[in-house]
């Protein structure tokens, strides 16, 4: 089983709970994701699975990524030009050989000439075809499955159990209603924000003859001793656009048909933003601890 899934934030609303109470929920489109790569201990040094999520246009995807996803790539203009030059050279060589052979065989009968020329041509074509096949085989990696292309590729851990293979799809069936999950997203960027917004400072006095001090930070430290501003002093600066993890959010509802998860509470980022939906870390830790206590018992 995988530890997480990729999704995107759809928006917030409220729904009625079992007792008629109002529950604020965030609607998340979770998956379906496709396994694009499996990382194993012997080859990569760790175990993980790379997931692809969201549709992307072929023209907006780079060739290295297409190759990684097992697409057979169209030739670049450069490759095509080189191939054309090669082919032209091959044709010329064949023609030269044929004409030379024809001159040589001028004394001999006409029948013999024809067969020789044919032979020369056929050998040329087979060698070029072989070279082409070799190149395309090199380009086609993996099992030859053309996946995606996807908008995002991300890695998730594997929590034991069945190891998925490349090309498998995973959806929100891995989560159940009532389960606690962690959600990771990128918070909305606030730009260069002042100290009140960024750190919750109270600003200056509004009255008693103050001017221009409404949102000021106040003092940033003592004077001559130490004669510098301490590191880490909270000041104005870039705010938001950070990776934020919200832990232990409750799944209120799941709609496997539309791939929707309803999670109680808010989630970082703007609507449409990419989210990583992960099994709750605390619950995983608990499970791991109970697993650890189980293990010695089995040994004994």
């Amino acid at each position: 089983m995988l530890s997480g899934l990729l999704g995107r934030k759809v928006g917030m609303t409220q729904i009625f709970g079992a007792r008629g109470e109002i529950i604020p929920v965030t609607v998340i489109e979770a998956g379906p994701c496709t396994v694009t790569q499996v990382k194993t201990l012997p080859t990569d040094g760790y175990e993980a699975v790379q997931l692809g999520f969201g549709e992307a246009k072929l023209k907006n995807t780079t060739r290295p990524i297409l190759g990684h996803l097992g697409h057979s790539l169209p030739q670049t203009p450069n490759q095509r030009r080189r191939q054309q030059i090669e082919q032209a050279k091959a044709r010329q060589a064949a023609r030269k050989k044929a004409s030379a052979a024809a001159e040589k065989a001028a004394d001999k009968s006409a029948k013999a000439t024809e067969t020789e020329a044919d032979e020369a041509e056929s050998t040329e074509t087979t060698t070029t075809a072989k070279a082409g096949a070799k190149a395309s085989a090199k380009r086609r990696r993996g099992a030859g499955q053309a996946l995606g292309p996807f908008r995002v590729l991300r890695e998730v851990k594997v929590l034991g159990g069945e190891f998925p293979g490349v090309g498998d799809t995973v959806d929100l069936a891995m989560f159940s209603v009532g389960e606690r999950i962690d959600i990771i997203g990128t918070s909305k960027g606030r730009g260069f924000a002042g100290v009140m917004k960024r750190h919750g400072f109270r600003g200056g006095q509004r009255t008693h003859g103050q001017s221009d001090r409404l949102r000021a930070p106040g003092s940033i430290g003592p004077g001559t001793t130490p004669g510098r501003v301490l590191k880490g002093t909270r000041m104005a600066g870039r705010m938001g656009n950070d990776r934020v993890t919200i832990k232990e959010l409750e799944i209120v509802q799941a709609d496997p048909e539309r791939n929707l998860l309803l999670v109680k509470g808010s989630v970082p980022g703007a609507n449409g933003g990419l989210l990583m939906i992960r099994k709750g870390a605390q619950q995983l830790a608990l499970a791991a601890r109970s697993g650890a206590t189980d293990a010695p018992k089995q040994r004994a």
Binding site: G11, M12, T13, I15
Partner: peptide, 14 residues
């Protein structure tokens, strides 16, 4: 567009 998805979620409880 995302709005129809939220609306669909709400629709179930109307």
């Amino acid at each position: 567009s995302l709005a129809p998805l939220v609306r669909a979620v709400e629709e179930a409880q109307l």
